[in-house]
Design a binder for these strands. Structure first.
Length: 427
RNA sequence: GCCGCGGUGCCAGAGUGGUUAUUGGGCCAGACUCGAGAUCUGGUGACCCUUUCGGGUCGCAGGGGUUCGAAUCCUCUCCGCGGCGCCA
């Protein structure tokens, strides 16, 4: 959520920033917010004046009563004012809601280093690490490899749960957990603290962490309860300190979340959906930071280094892109994607690193203070970055480490977590 | 799931229909001091109007209601604690 005061005081700055997203709907929304806010303020002044009159009348009634005099006249006047207050208040409330709805739909302000562009084709590559593996045979997709090795059962999962779900089998289950354990150890060594969050959370915190459109297209709702399955541990981690005031001394708070992720993936026609790429359920280890506003750009780069060094340790060839204004989404001020090389020669997103600045913190009301005993000073900044999503990491390992005989080598750093297993072979 | 008790400021905690949210503590500023401590004084959240000075409104878990007037009465929701039930 943007600061309404910023919008009031500097509407041109906000307008120019929103224009970079090339979405006229958002500009329209901004103009509405400005208009409704103006009405809300004038109604607020009116209500305040009426309440002041009411308070004076009540005090007068109290005084007359004490003196044992007649109060009926004043009470009738009070009734009239009270009716008027109710009326104006209802109107004011209506505009407050309009302003709030608008604010909840406006996206974050973009950092100046975000490249201008229309869609993912305009994302700017900023570096590559390693080389694509060279095969002297025709490399297979991870799906073929996994099916050949008997590592996944898609058909039975479709029967039991529907398309987009999988039974993982044998070594692939070990690999799943090995990837998580590797990421957990890697990050805890760097001072991040482990969190296994609730796997479902209520609507109010959810509205704080995500865009409203996600409720339809992404989130599974529990029937008859105010609960949604989490799409990533980012969400319960961000909401963890909702309505709290953190001490400056406690910042930054660096977390590493571990959880399954549940996503409906509505409207993904035309997108790449093969195999394990786009599942309704997968496991993920996630990095999350709460910090002071002045530190967030520094930590954005730290999160990026953490991720890249994990892929380097796994020996996976990847590239990094700076996500452009047309593709960045609602809540991030700046976003790097890491795209991993796949056997068809295409680089595909495997993780995503966002600085959300104060956007989530304002929606969730997470503030900080300079010192114990002092009032809050401002909103914290929040950042999130994938550590390793197991599904897409497994996919990359299967494709980049595949051998001519159909077997797959296990990256060295994962072997300790797989009982020393070096290779997955046909049984 | 049922019954009972509770939720008040940065913290503790009083307040059962009437101007002004009792009192401690914390924190900030000022006074005193060579300095610190102790002591004293003032301040300490949000919002609206106002260029400033200042004025006003709100805020007692959250929403709705009763009343001229609600922290206080009614109602629903959330959270915490205790008891009962169920349970890996």
């Amino acid at each position: 959520m943007l600061d309404i005061k910023l919008i009031r005081e500097n509407p041109d700055l906000v307008r120019r920033n929103l224009e970079r997203r090339q979405d006229p709907e958002k500009i329209r929304l901004l103009e509405e917010v400005i208009k409704y806010d103006r009405v809300w303020r004038s109604l607020t002044t009116k209500v305040n004046e009426l309440r002041r009159r009411r308070n004076l009348i009540s005090a007068e009634v109290a005084r007359l009563k004490k003196e044992g005099r007649d109060t009926s006249e004043k009470i009738r006047e009070g009734e009239r004012v009270q009716r008027e207050i109710k009326k104006v208040e209802a109107e004011r409330e209506r505009y407050a809601r309009l302003v709030r709805n608008g604010l909840m739909r406006l996206p974050n302000l973009l950092h100046e280093s975000v490249p201008f562009g229309r869609d993912e084709r305009d994302n700017v590559e900023i570096r590559r690490w390693g080389e694509p593996p060279k095969f002297n045979f025709k490399p297979k997709s991870h799906l073929e490899i996994a099916l050949d090795l008997g590592l996944i059962d898609a058909e039975r999962a479709a029967k039991v749960a529907g398309a987009g779900f999988f039974y993982l089998r044998d070594e692939l289950v070990l690999l799943d957990y090995a990837i998580m354990r590797f990421a957990m150890d890697f990050l805890t060594k760097r001072g991040y603290r482990l969190v296994e969050p609730p796997f479902m959370i209520k609507r109010r915190p959810y509205e704080g962490v995500t865009a409203l459109e996600d409720f339809e297209d992404v989130l599974y709702k529990i029937e008859g309860e105010d609960l949604y399955l989490i799409a990533t541990s980012e969400h319960p981690m961000a909401a963890m300190f909702m309505d709290e005031v953190l001490n400056k001394d406690d910042l930054p708070i660096k977390l590493v979340g571990v959880s399954p992720c549940f996503r409906k993936e509505v409207g993904t026609h035309g997108k790449y959906t093969k195999g394990l790429f786009r599942m309704h359920q997968f496991n993920k280890v996630e990095q999350f930071i709460f910090c002071l506003p002045e530190d967030s750009w520094k930590f954005h780069e730290e999160l990026q280094r953490n991720s890249e060094e994990m892929y380097q340790a796994l020996g996976l060839h990847y590239r990094v892109v700076n996500v452009c204004t047309g593709d960045i989404g609602t809540i991030a001020a700046k976003k790097y994607d890491i795209e991993v090389w796949m056997a068809d020669g295409v680089y595909r997103e495997i993780g995503s690193n966002s600085n959300c600045t104060d956007y989530q913190a304002r929606r969730l009301n997470i503030r900080y203070r300079e010192k114990e005993g002092q009032p809050p000073k401002g909103y914290v900044h929040t950042l999130n970055n994938t550590a390793l999503a197991t599904s897409r990491t497994m996919m990359a390992i299967l494709e980049q480490y595949q051998q001519e005989d159909g077997s797959v080598i296990i990256p060295k750093v994962l072997r300790p977590y797989m009982n020393g297993l070096k290779k997955i072979e046909k049984k």
